[in-house]
């Protein structure tokens, strides 16, 4: 249900399908299974093994041997605990902001523009259009816009919101802005898919049954578009938590806005492979726990 926007769980044919046909299913599944084994399971196992490695015999930089050095994890948590919290906070904030911007946008495209299919397609293309330009370039463009001598800072200083010594680049504001901006299409599209299929007769029935506009939204429109909201928030939150571009000091961040992705990146390029792997695993677990809890809750009926 949570991923309803992506995959329709079709009718269960397993019982009806004749048994002797099952080899067809195996052949069709094989490429997918091989792909998953090669690109997901194998790297994951390798990553877990790497995260327990210890420095090699001759103590040369970047040389490690297989071991069970759990201290890597203790070190990761000890050194980077604060960064994990920041990562979670930034991603959550960006997800919420993206949701607040995307839902009305998706509603406008999916419901308001329903009677004008041409406009609907056009606006939809506008949502996807940024993908045609490398996101590195787009993020760099924002860096230029938010630059100390740039238009935004000058304007905010002129009207007195920012002091003469204040700046934007490298602050939490620009990082969260960048995350929100970069992931808005991933939020908008699944919500749009849900809203586009929304049967407006339910909304009419709600009005007929004494529900005002706010009640109609909270009790009918939102619950019926929830699959899209769940998909969109996951598609935003998960990659945002692992993002290492926006928060990097080369883009919109600074040393004060380091996120888990940047740590993994830095540790790796400084050849601290086990530590880098340990941070990766921890990040994965840290994301997985809230996500699983969220999906389980949205799949259950009390959220509806």
């Amino acid at each position: 249900m949570a991923f309803g926007a992506f995959a329709n769980s079709g009718p269960d044919l397993s019982a009806a399908a004749p048994r002797r046909r099952s080899y067809v299913a195996i052949i069709l599944l094989a490429p997918g299974v091989v792909y998953l084994l090669a690109t997901f399971v194998a790297p994951l196992v390798s990553l877990v093994l790497t995260s327990f490695k210890e420095p090699g015999g001759d103590f040369e930089v970047g040389e490690y041997v297989y071991a069970f050095r759990w201290e890597n994890y203790a070190e990761a948590i000890g050194r980077f605990g604060e960064i994990f919290l920041r990562t979670f906070g930034y991603s959550l904030l960006a997800t919420i902001l993206a949701l607040l911007i995307s839902y009305p946008l998706a509603y406008f495209i999916g419901v308001t523009l329903r009677r004008f299919p041409l406009w609907q397609s056009l606006v939809l293309i506008l949502v996807i259009a940024p993908f045609f330009i490398s996101f590195l370039l787009r993020t760099l463009a924002w860096k230029a816009i938010f630059a100390d001598e740039g238009p935004v800072v000058s304007f905010l200083q002129a009207i007195g919101i920012l002091g003469p010594e204040d700046y934007l680049n490298g602050t939490a504001f620009t990082v969260i802005f960048g995350l929100t901006y970069n992931y808005i299409p991933f939020m908008t599209l699944p919500i749009y898919t849900s809203l586009e299929r929304l049967d407006l007769r339910y909304v009419e029935a709600g009005g007929d049954l004494y529900a005002g506009p706010a009640q109609r939204f909270w009790r009918i429109i939102l619950p019926l578009s929830l699959p899209g909201v769940v998909s969109g928030t996951l598609l935003t939150f998960i990659p945002a938590s692992g993002d290492y571009v926006n928060a990097s000091k080369d883009f919109l961040g600074s040393t004060n806005t380091v996120m888990a992705g940047n740590v993994i990146n830095d540790m790796f390029f400084q050849s601290f492979y086990p530590l880098s792997a340990a941070v990766s695993i921890l990040l994965m677990i840290a994301i997985l726990i809230p996500v699983v809890a969220y999906v389980a809750r949205s799949g259950s009926e009390d959220l509806l």
């Binding site: 049967d199 007769r201 339910y202 009419e204 029935a205 007929d208 009918i220 019926l224 509806l304």
Partner: peptide, 10 residues
């Protein structure tokens, strides 16, 4: 309503 329009999520 002709289509009943029963709320499917309730």
């Amino acid at each position: 309503f002709q289509s009943y329009a029963l709320f499917p999520h309730m």
